[in-house]
Design a protein around this nucleic acid. Structure first.
Length: 447
RNA sequence: GUGGGCUUAGUUCAGUUUGGUUAGAACGCCAGAUUGUGGCUCUGGAGGUCACCGGUUCAAGUCCGGUAGUCCACCCCA
């Protein structure tokens, strides 16, 4: 009987072909994280609901996957959520990390630089570039207020995406600037409404944003005062020059601008090429409400997809768990979206791995001792090798090499045994040579 | 959470407009031509309860309703 099988909505299987490409991305990320001295940790897929709830805003709470308590009756009627569920799947890696830091505070030497590459889950409605289970690759520095951490994160972004071959723009802003703007128009309590509305300026245009602001309770006068910010254009320096005047006398706003300028100036003076990726964008808001300072988002220049990396500074995330005065800053690379971007731009061309470099043809057990010995020698030389397990017709064995993109086939039969050689066939060119094992190894290595 | 499109062989899709005998193609798969040499070619073969459940009808892949999945937009977000 035939059974219909499938994976749950919004989740995916990864085939070997896809996994080899994903590994390529993860390897580049991890290599760069290590080069900057970040160390790995992992946390459980499950967290206590009390750890997760209330950290991501109202919207985030709704998107949390909650796990039923074990030992429940099979029928649940009229139960409050707190009665039936006290655990949930992690929604991101930052909040579990804050929990980790608080819990392990006595073992950690600050500033603590960690990276974490694990999947997260959101009960979102899936669509393009949006999955219910996806990987985040986070790096955070916790226990340091220095803005040099922000500088370093942007430097890492630049390294990673240049190595991957993706042209990006790093959009930069600061929550304190946004707060200052809200204060400037006498609507500090409307900060969230303002940021949600101005975030859409590029998408829906000035007039519609003004309408939305009216609906969200701002006065005509306040909106007029806000308008120069909404229409702000020009170079980073022109924008910051405007805000310097606009935010004059508003302490929080001035502080935010000062932080932003420090990050930008440092990069301009030391890494001009990296600075050129940066765009100061007053409309960048970011939804997660634990951010307090710098916020940033990375967009791919050549593909229309949501942000592929984002993050910022959070001054008091550990405070929620009872550990005050520990500031953190971090970013999260969205591996699945990076994959989609690279696939669309055809950037995997020639970079992906093959299952093995060499396939040994099986002519029967009488040649097995040679095959085993030779394949071990290849492996000692770092050359991955497969022995075809069945003695079947050559066509099938060659087909296997083709389909798995294995570049070389080694044939050992009666002739080769008599001559103490191997027949090495290059599957791309079709060229076949009778060589000693050492010569064969050299040929494979040089290819 | 709101709105829309789609679902037919392993895959990509025709067929649905106008209901009518036995649902097609390409690619892929298997076997042979070719028992120590793959990609090309030729020959043959397997593979479908037309997503599921129900309704209308003498008759449903085709019309109607529901469910699920999937894709897209909005909301929000990686």
């Amino acid at each position: 009987m035939k059974v219909k099988v499938s994976v749950p909505k919004g989740t995916r299987d990864f085939t070997p072909e896809v996994m080899l490409k994903r590994k390529y991305i993860f390897n580049i990320l991890e290599k760069n994280f290590r080069l900057f001295g970040y160390v790995p940790i992992e946390t459980p897929a499950l967290e206590n609901l009390s750890t997760l709830l209330g950290k991501y805003g109202e919207e985030g709470d709704k998107l949390l996957f909650k796990i039923l308590n074990s030992g429940l009756d099979t029928k649940i009627e009229n139960k409050e959520i707190k009665d039936i569920s006290n655990k949930g799947l992690r929604y991101d890696l930052t909040v579990p990390f804050a929990r980790y830091v608080v819990q392990h505070r006595n073992e950690i030497t600050f500033p603590f630089k960690r990276y974490q590459i694990q999947s997260v889950w959101r009960a979102d409605k899936p669509q393009k570039g949006r999955y219910r289970e996806f990987y985040q690759c986070d790096i955070d520095v916790i226990g340091s207020n220095s803005l040099l951490n922000e500088v370093e994160l942007i430097l890492i972004i630049s390294h990673v995406f240049s190595e991957l071959g993706i042209n990006v723009t790093v959009k930069l802003n600061n929550r304190k600037i946004l707060a200052g703007i809200a204060q400037r128009i006498n609507a500090p309590e409307k900060l969230t409404d303002i940021t949600i509305a101005i975030d859409k300026i590029e998408k829906i245009g000035l007039e519609k944003v003004k309408n939305e602001l009216l609906q969200r309770g701002l006065s005509k006068h306040q909106i007029d005062e806000l308008e120069p910010v909404l229409t702000l254009e020009g170079s980073n320096l022109e924008k910051t020059a405007f805000l310097k005047t606009y935010l004059e006398g508003i302490a929080e706003g001035e502080k935010g601008l000062e932080e932003l300028l420090f990050v930008m100036d440092t990069l301009r003076e030391t890494f001009p090429a990296v600075y050129n990726l940066i765009e100061f964008d007053t409309s960048l808001a970011r939804g997660l409400n634990y951010y307090t300072g710098a916020i940033l988002e990375v967009k791919a220049n050549d593909v229309a997809i949501g942000s592929i990396c984002g993050g910022g500074r959070y001054d008091n995330l550990t405070g929620i768990f009872g550990m005050d005065n520990v500031s953190g800053v971090g970013i999260s690379f969205g591996a699945d979206r990076i994959y989609d971007v690279m696939e669309q731009l055809d950037l995997f061309n020639g970079v992906t791995d093959v299952p093995a470099k060499v396939l040994f043809i099986n002519f029967g057990n009488e040649y097995l001792t040679y095959i085993y010995e030779y394949s071990e020698t290849l492996r000692e030389n770092g050359i991955s090798s497969i022995i075809y397990p069945d003695k079947v017709k050559l066509k099938k064995q060659f087909d296997y090499a083709n389909k798995n993109k294995i570049p070389f086939v080694i044939i050992i039969g009666e002739n080769e045994v008599n001559n103490s050689t191997v027949a090495l066939k290059n599957m791309q060119t079709g060229e076949q040579q009778e060589l000693t094992l050492l010569q064969a190894i050299e040929t494979i290595k040089n290819n």
